[in-house]
Write a protein that binds this DNA or RNA. Structure first.
Length: 669
RNA sequence: GCUGCUGUAGCUCAGUGGUAGAGCGCGUCCUUGGUAAGGACGAGGUCAUGGGUUCGACCCCCAUCAGCAGCUCCA
């Protein structure tokens, strides 16, 4: 008896040498053994058939009910897919990496292939690959784990023509010397892999689906070859798969590009230019409400609004460092000399569409001598900026080439920095809270010491990074630090949210910058009558209106709270005999600052209700004989239905209360 | 930028090597109605753009542009 296992229920069992979790499962009940897919041994996920080392172990047997099992299932699905692709497209197919994804909204696994010349896999081929996978599942091929020495491993992979695997072996050994490597295989398929996997391909079952095919660079490096990535997902139960597909389908209906069209919020038109949204009246209303609301807060907090042009002299951007370092992501400079060609010389004048607002705000700071008594100076602007985003990056409102930042730059003394950052965090949180965006994460974005894209000296970077850390800790925020995510002039705190299909987007940002004040030569006179360099905070609680509203549309599924709704009330006369009364209702509500529209079409009231509901208008005011006689309206909510009748003044007052509470006080009749 | 896919009416989409169709929307008329679709008639398309193959191209081929998914990038 040399293996002892302790089970979650507290009891322990002894087994002879060579016992595996499967041995234990079989010992407990044969049904359990059949249901098991893997095991947790001392908090490590392992194969069912992996012999337990001598000694005492905590053992948890995992069945399809356990969360961890899904990862094993999906990992095996990836292998089976690779096996199927090889069967269909030949032994020259190279397979590289194929992980399980458990935190991805859409996909459950993928595998990256390097296909032989002339072979392409398209969406239409996925069915064929799935069919091959199903055949492999029917075969119930045992999945075997083997360990090989480094030499054997290399020989095995070389034998199969798997150069990527050979590269991986070398890299793994360079990172961490090892004597043996584990492999998993079924039938003639063999893959270097840590595992664990299901005991046989039959256990994969039928609840899997291949979803998408796309390109992906080897090692995520754009200088390396582009591989073919196939995405899929897998579940233990067909019902779970169906539910998942349904969920994704539903989520796609919330897509802001779809809703933007349906609700007439904005327009992205080829004739205007890629990534250049036109805000339609309804979308512009949402934007204006958000802007007015935020501006009220800013002024209350001592910000001063400024306005600056959309273009400025090239030298400004040379000073800031944007040009030429970020030349690739800017619109090309505007120049007037007819024979100008190629790069502008260093002394040449020209103008640049602004990729950021900061240089203008720095110049405003410099426009007069500043004393410590003037600080902090908070300059805010809803400034439209222009960036040449790569064509493949453009996406609805979330990644555009012309967008408006709710930008501000705070110039302060080093002593004031901490409290300024804190109040910026407060503002960003206020924005997210007010708009119900509670599912976000906070990233402290630091520089990557191995890269040289940053300006300024080490000392200032360290100061800035430490200060940000200090604030997020003091405020007890949940955050993660990520190297390499900093701006070129300073580190930042970023607020990141997900869109309807789980893609992450940075919204609000707070950036500490010691460098631009140096580059622009900012000064203030201190209490000591000496000149000092101010510190600068760049911050944007929304980030950009375009991206923020894109996310907001998806968050609300187009059904904005009353204060943001482009049309707050639709007045629906039951027949055109009551259009005149409807008009008077419209006038009364509009006079109280309510955005209201009359539907005087010749449709029946049911059709009018349907139309207003689909347009996500929060309230409908239905008027007919009864209402006209009593000077009332019948109120219907877009989701709650008929709320009953009440007087016009009463409704106007209650709507105003709900609007001004920003959704906190729903109307009741 | 890279890989793959897509581009037909305002929108969503069918369709064929012999110059086009549906539903919704839009317009006019009829209907005058009570809480998610009343009816009739009508207008509307250089089938993304430019080349090529063909007697003939919306359809096949090439290029360009744009969109979508993913990768990379993102001050």
């Amino acid at each position: 008896m040399s293996v002892t296992v302790e089970l979650p229920d507290g009891c322990s069992r002894d087994y002879p040498d060579g016992a595996s979790p499967l041995t234990v499962a079989e010992d407990i009940a044969s049904g359990l053994a059949r249901a098991c897919v893997a095991a947790m041994v001392d908090d490590r996920l392992v194969d069912l058939q992996r012999p337990l080392a001598a000694g005492t172990h905590e053992l948890r047997l995992l069945t399809d009910r356990d969360e961890e099992s899904l990862e094993v299932l999906r990992h095996t699905a990836a292998h089976v897919m690779a096996q199927a692709v090889r069967r269909l497209y030949g032994d020259d197919v190279q397979y590289t990496i194929g992980p399980a994804l458990t935190d991805d909204f859409q996909y459950g696994f993928y595998y990256d292939f390097d296909l032989p010349d002339g072979i392409h896999i398209s969406q239409d081929d996925l069915e064929k690959i799935e069919a091959e996978m199903k055949a492999i599942v029917r075969d119930k091929q045992p999945i075997q784990r083997t360990e090989m020495s480094v030499e054997e491993a290399k020989a095995a992979m070389k034998d199969r023509g798997q150069c990527y695997k050979l590269e991986m072996i070398d890299d793994m050994l360079a990172a961490e010397p090892a004597t043996g490597l584990s492999f998993y295989g079924q039938d003639d398929f063999l893959d270097m892999c840590r595992g664990p996997h299901l005991p046989d391909t039959g256990k994969l079952g039928k609840a899997f689906k291949l979803l998408n095919v796309a390109g992906a660079y080897w090692r995520g490096d754009e200088t390396k070859p582009m591989l073919t990535r196939i995405y899929g997902t897998a579940f233990f139960d067909k019902k779970d798969l169906a539910a998942h597909l349904e969920r994704v389908e539903e989520a796609r209906k919330r897509d802001h590009r779809v809703l933007g069209k349906q609700l007439e919020l904005f327009l992205l038109d080829e004739t205007v230019g890629p990534g250049m949204p036109l805000w339609l009246p309804k979308g512009a209303t949402v934007r204006r409400e958000l802007q007015d609301w935020l501006q009220g807060h800013l002024i209350g907090q001592g910000y001063q609004m400024v306005v600056t042009p959309h273009i400025g002299k090239l030298d400004l951007w040379r000073t800031s460092g944007h040009y030429p370092y970020y030349k690739e992501s800017q619109f090309p400079p505007i120049r007037f000399d007819d024979d100008a060609a190629g790069e502008p010389e260093a002394d040449e004048h020209g103008f640049l569409l602004k990729p950021m607002n900061c240089p203008f705000h720095l110049e405003i700071y410099k426009s007069k001598q500043r004393s410590y008594r003037d600080l902090p100076l908070r300059l805010a602007e809803f400034g439209q900026v222009y960036r040449w985003e790569q064509s493949g990056e453009l996406s609805g409102l979330t990644r555009v080439r012309a967008f408006t930042q709710d930008d501000a730059h705070i110039f302060c003394t080093p002593e004031q920095l901490e409290s300024e950052i804190e109040s910026c965090v407060g503002l960003a949180e206020l924005v997210l809270r007010t708009l119900d965006l509670d599912d976000y994460r906070v990233r402290v974005s630091l520089r990557d010491p191995d890269r040289d894209k940053y300006v300024g000296d080490e000392e200032h970077w360290t100061l800035a990074e430490d200060k940000l850390r200090q604030v997020v800790r003091k405020l007890a925020m949940n955050y993660s630090e990520e190297k390499g995510e900093a701006a070129f002039y300073g580190p930042k705190i970023d607020f990141i949210v997900k869109d309807c299909i789980g893609r992450e987007w940075q919204l609000g940002t707070i950036q500490v910058d010691y460098n631009l004040p140096v580059r622009f030569g900012l000064e203030y006179v201190g209490a000591d009558n000496q000149t000092h360099q101010p510190v600068m905070v760049h911050r944007a609680p929304f980030g950009s209106f375009e991206r923020f509203i894109g996310i907001l549309i998806e968050h609300y599924g187009g059904a904005f709270p009353l204060w943001l709704s482009p049309v707050q009330v639709a007045v629906l006369p039951v027949s055109d005999k009551f259009n005149a009364y409807g008009k008077s209702v419209v006038a009364a509500l509009a006079a109280r600052g309510i955005r209201v529209e009359l539907d005087d079409s010749s449709d029946k009231v049911g059709a009018k209700i349907r139309r207003a509901t689909l347009q996500k208008v929060p309230y409908m005011a239905i008027v007919g004989q009864r209402e006209a006689e009593g000077e009332t309206v019948s109120i219907r909510h877009r989701t709650d239905g008929d709320l009953g009748a009440t007087g016009i003044e009463d409704v106007a007052g209650k709507l105003a209360v709900e609007r001004d509470s920003r959704g906190a006080t729903p109307l009741t009749v």
